[in-house]
Amino acid sequence: MYHQIDLPAPRGTSFRSLTVHPRNFKRQMYWMHRFGYRGLSMRDLMPYLKGERSGKVFGITFDDGYRNVYQHALPVLTELGFTSTNYLVANQFGGGNFWDSQNNVPFSPLMSQSEARAWIQAGQEVGSHTLDHVHLPELSFEEARYQISHSRRVLSDALQEEVTAFCYPYGQLTTQHADIVFEAGYQNATTTQRGLANSDDSPFLLPRVGVWRSTPILRFFQKCFTRYEDRRRG
C-alpha cells in the first residue's frame, strides 16, 4: 500500500510518512524483481489469491491517484514489467487532495483524465476510491451506496475501462459497506488492515502491507516475506 511517490514534505508536515521517495520505491521494486517476484495489480493478483494460479507474486496498490505516482512510479513499473492498481477519486480528475487540507497536508495534484488513460494504456489498473474520498461510516446507507456504486460508473465511462477494484477511504468501513461493494459489481476491495492477504480472506476485505517514507529496506523485506505477519503491526 503506497500513497505518494515523491520528495517528502518538510519535517513537521502532517502525514509526511505517506510519501515515499522515488529512489526508495525504485530500490524496493528492483529488489523484489531480483528475488524473482512479479508485482501485480489487483485484477492480475486475484487468480493467485483464489488459488487458481501459483507463483512468486505480490500486489502493488496506490491510494488516491496522485500525479507523482504517474510521474515517478510508472516508469519503474513499466521497466520491470510490473502492473499495479491506482485507486482514483472519481470526481477529482486533475484535482487535488482537498480532503487533507484541514490536516495541514500540502496540496498535491491528482492525475488528469488523460493521464489516467495513459496509465491504463501502459498496462496498469484503475480502481475506485469513491466519488469524493468520504468517510463511509459517517454517511447514510443511500449516500454510501451512491459514493461506491456511482464512482464505478463515472470512472468506467470516463476511461472506457471496466473498473473492478475498490478501496475504502481512510480504511473505514462496516460489513454493510463490503456488501454494497459486492452488489455494485466490484470483484475485490482493499482495506488498511495490516497484513498479508491470502486465500482465507474475503476478496472484499483484503489487508495490505503499508509502505511508508521511513520504512527501511530490511523492514520492507520483513513485511513482504513474513507470510503470517501479525496484522496488528506495521
Rank of each mutant, 00 (worst) to 15 (best):
N103C: 05
G127H: 03
T85V: 05
A144N: 02
N104A: 13
M111Q: 08
F141S: 04
A118V: 05
W99E: 11
S112P: 06
L136S: 10
F98T: 13
D132G: 09
F82H: 10
T83Q: 02
N103V: 06
A90S: 14
Q102D: 13
P106F: 09
S84V: 03
S114R: 09
R117I: 10
E125Q: 11
W99Q: 06
E125Y: 04
S108R: 15
P137A: 06
P106K: 01
S114D: 15
A118G: 05
A118H: 07
S112T: 15
S108C: 11
F141N: 06
S84M: 04
N91V: 01
G123R: 01
P109D: 14
Q113C: 11
T85A: 07
G94S: 07
L110Q: 14
T130I: 05
L136C: 03
L136T: 06
L131M: 14
L131N: 11
F98W: 12
I120P: 03
E143S: 14
E115V: 03
N103T: 08
G123L: 00
N97R: 08
P109G: 09
G96V: 02
N97A: 09
S84N: 04
L88P: 08
G96T: 13
S84F: 00
I120Y: 08
E143M: 06
I120H: 02
Q121V: 02
V105A: 12
F107M: 14
H133K: 08
L139H: 04
Q147D: 10
D100I: 06
V89Q: 06
F141G: 00
F141D: 08
F82P: 01
W99G: 09
G81I: 07
Q113K: 14
Q121A: 09
S101E: 15
H129E: 05
E125S: 00
G123S: 03
V89N: 04
S128E: 12
H135I: 10
D132L: 07
S114W: 09
A122T: 01
P106T: 04
S101V: 15
E143F: 04
E143D: 15
W99P: 14
L139D: 01
G95F: 05
R117L: 12
A122E: 02
N103H: 15
F82C: 01
N97K: 13
T83R: 02
F141A: 04
G95P: 10
S128C: 03
Y87N: 11
T85D: 09
